[in-house]
């Protein structure tokens, strides 16, 4: 039983990160109907910037408490990612807003490859060690273990998600975002500056992504130029699972996908009598994606119809 509890806990930690990244995908998709392939790379850049700032500051500012350094690093990561996302939208997506559907998707793929390789040129191909932010001493709850950092991941993710929901539902900006996603033209007629709202969507998603990047890198104490790609794909899967374009759906989808992967990898061997094993962990994610898209393209909580493509 404690093993199952542990697997659920593992799944929740994994899932909260997926959910945080999935929000970035789902916001952009909700407004533009575009899969922003480069979002996973924004997450990676967030981790890399935080790492670079931390290395720089610990080298130069001796005696400063670590909390200050970490906060500065995260702030820098958020700022850079926001600027980057703004630039990506401006350069690669905005000129193609009225082009055929495939065009922005192809530039998004190109952007993802470009960012990955630029990061590789800047930071090299080596795996980088991410400094320890919290004590790794695990706590034991009912036979399952959890570290401080993992608690932080769950709490921070939850707080950010609640904050985002509040932003979208109760502020002027949020109302404008919802209006834009319903109908860009009408929103424009109603006095909403559509370009600005779209930029804001990208920038908010990137900020969440930057935090997610730092959390992931800290949790595994490793950062690498390719860390964002697979994470991004998984997060997108989560967004689709929950119902793309729906914020609550992204969160639910993220947590569910985390649980599916962790419990799947943990028990598939026993269920199939050893025929399938943990090597099919990624297959679960993609299979879920295909099944959802084919049988219920609106996802669990989505109201949109895929046919509008």
């Amino acid at each position: 039983m404690d093993i199952l509890l542990q697997q659920i806990l593992n799944g929740l930690v994994l899932g909260s990160v997926y959910a945080l990244v999935a929000l970035g995908y789902t916001m952009v998709y909700g407004i533009l109907g575009l899969i922003n392939f480069a979002h996973g790379e924004v997450v990676m850049i967030g981790a890399m910037i935080a790492l670079a700032v931390m290395t720089l500051l610990t080298g130069t500012m001796v005696g400063v408490p670590p909390v200050v350094i970490v906060s500065l690093a995260i702030a820098a990561a958020i700022a850079v990612c926001m600027a980057l996302a703004y630039a990506i939208e401006r350069v690669a997506y905005r000129p193609l807003r009225n082009a055929p559907r495939l065009a922005p998707l192809i530039t998004a793929i190109g952007m993802s490859i470009l960012l990955q390789n630029v990061a590789m040129v800047i930071w090299g191909r080596q795996y980088k060690t991410f400094p320890q932010l919290f004590s790794t001493q695990p706590h034991t709850i009912a036979g399952a273990t959890i570290t401080d950092l993992q608690i932080v991941i769950i709490v921070v993710s939850a707080a950010l998600m609640v904050g985002l929901l509040a932003l979208v539902n109760f502020t002027r900006l949020g109302r404008a975002m919802r209006a834009t996603s319903e109908n860009k033209t009408i929103a424009g007629l109603m006095g909403v500056n559509v370009d600005k709202i779209i930029s804001a969507t990208f920038v908010i998603g990137a900020a969440l992504g930057a935090v997610a990047g730092v959390l992931v890198a800290a949790n595994y104490s490793i950062a690498h130029y390719s860390m964002g790609f697979m994470l991004g794909l998984k997060a997108f899967t989560a967004a689709v699972l929950g119902g793309i374009g729906n914020l609550g759906g992204a969160v639910l989808g993220g947590l569910l996908l985390g649980l599916i992967e962790s419990i799947g990898a943990g028990y598939i061997g026993d269920v199939t009598g050893g025929f399938l094993g943990s090597h099919y962990q990624d297959v679960f994610a993609f299979l879920v994606l295909i099944l959802v898209l084919v049988f219920r393209p609106t996802g669990i909580m989505g109201e949109r119809v895929a046919e509008r493509a």
Binding site: Q7, N10, G266
Partner: peptide, 11 residues
């Protein structure tokens, strides 16, 4: 491509 091994390690 993975950095999370908790599922298999828990198993």
């Amino acid at each position: 491509t993975k950095t999370d091994f908790t599922a298999i390690l828990t198993r």
